[in-house]
Amino acid sequence: MTERSVSFTLNGEQREAKVDPRTHLGDFLRHSLGLTGTHLGCEHGVCGACTVIVDGAPVRSCLMLAVQIEGSVVETVEGLGNPDSLSTLQQAFVTNHGLQCGFCTPGMLMTLEAYLRSTPMPTERDVRIAISGNICRCTGYEGIVQAALDVAATRADRT
């Protein structure tokens, strides 16, 4: 099938690429761009591991075609921080033991990153509903919820 070119912003950098229309965004990020931080679990929209941020909204990258990001701003976990300098949210996950095997973590981080931008002062229940589309089989969610609440509290102190 005919390849299409797409141009988009990825983690702040302008990019262009050619894509097969049937390639979903998650495969495109991992296979074509080598950004393997985005994890693919179920590939039919149930597990949330592949969540990335497109134009400010958290989306499941397995349910969006790469060709659809034409002109869009895409953020992946690679854009949050790096091993030498974790983002506030990433550091809060470490502090609160919000991860164990790490498979769901990129999706949890990107979901909460987008969520905390639009809802800076969530309640515990709000956070639990926000991550209801992300499945974690290790942590029992407690550390993840606490990490999000810590970040919200820290930001509230600063303002």
Binding site: T51, R60, S132
Partner: peptide, 9 residues
């Protein structure tokens, strides 16, 4: 209806 990720699309 779904979750924040699915309602966004």
């Amino acid at each position: 209806v779904g979750h924040i990720q699915t309602r966004a699309r």
